[in-house]
């Protein structure tokens, strides 16, 4: 098995947060991920790019075992090892809820719960059994600050999350994902439903978040990948075509297929 470049591409001293190893995944009879191998660097932004339908979301949703919610989905071989404890997230005996407590997710379309702004953020903490009002208040405030939303909502925490603008709703969802202190946050095209200004604010936020948390982001927008990611993985038809440092992937890809996609000759 060929180790994707990037591992040896001059990032010494970098820790790995997770490694996808030879992963196969099936939707019923459909082979959606084929022998995917990829490192995820600690507290860096890793972007997944590739044409629509190539399996970016599928790979992302393996990381928090979202596929377990639906019958017929099958992790068929390989795994995702989370460091430093070397847990295989996909192992049968690992509880998907435990995985989701360590790895949180922000979806394509903002999906705040029809609850107050406060309760939206507090929910990640409540499922972890936190009941102390002061502690909740502090953590909710910290998460909203972390998601750059606190200044806009601090005086209306009891209003419905759905009353916020699209960009604010997405930052609310980021606050919800952030509140529980996750090790990795997964983003599935988080700006595809947003206008350019809201998109810019989310991109800025993502680059700030990587100080403390590892980020894996799916994007169909190559400029976005180039702007915010440290590493980029190019996927095609369920396979990992190329992985590398973002600058290198965009300036001097080693594979012809990657170059064609990036230069817009294909996809």
């Amino acid at each position: 098995m060929q180790i994707p470049s990037g591992l040896e591409a001059g990032v010494e001293g970098d820790l790995l947060k997770a490694e996808v190893r030879d992963l196969d995944f099936y939707y019923g009879g459909f082979h959606a991920l084929k022998h995917v191998t990829m490192p995820v660097h600690d507290r860096k932004v890793t972007a997944l790019i590739g044409p629509s339908g190539c399996g970016k979301s599928t790979l992302l949703r393996c990381f928090n075992r979202m596929h377990d919610l639906y019958p017929g989905n099958r992790y068929a071989g390989g795994g995702i090892v989370l460091h430093p404890d070397n847990t295989n997230l996909l192992a049968q005996e690992v509880d998907p809820i435990e995985v989701r407590m360590r790895i949180s997710m922000v979806f394509q379309k903002p999906n705040p719960f029809p609850k107050s702004i406060y309760e939206n953020v507090a929910y990640s903490l409540r499922v972890r059994g936190m009941r102390n009002k002061n502690e909740l208040d502090d953590r909710v405030e910290a998460a909203l600050k972390g998601a750059a939303l606190w200044n806009e909502v601090s005086n209306r925490l009891n209003e419905l999350g759905a009353n916020l603008s699209g960009g604010q709703q997405q930052r609310l969802c980021i606050a919800r994902a952030l509140a529980s202190d996750p090790e990795i946050i997964l983003f599935d095209e988080p700006t595809s439903a947003l206008d350019p200004i809201a998109t810019a604010s989310i991109e800025e936020l993502v680059t700030e978040l990587k100080e403390n948390v590892t980020i894996l982001i799916v994007t169909h927008n190559m400029q976005q990948a180039a702007r915010i990611s440290d590493f980029t993985a190019y996927m095609y038809l369920g396979e990992m075509v190329e992985f590398g440092i973002t600058d290198q992937i965009f300036i001097k890809p080693t594979k012809k297929a990657t170059e064609d996609y990036i230069t817009g000759r294909f996809g």
């Binding site: 928090n64 979202m66 997710m105 379309k109 929910y123 499922v127």
Partner: peptide, 15 residues
């Protein structure tokens, strides 16, 4: 109830 709300809850680690 939209699927996204459903998934949002599970993604938070809810049973």
């Amino acid at each position: 109830i939209p699927q996204s709300i459903h998934e949002g809850s599970y993604a938070c680690g809810a049973t």
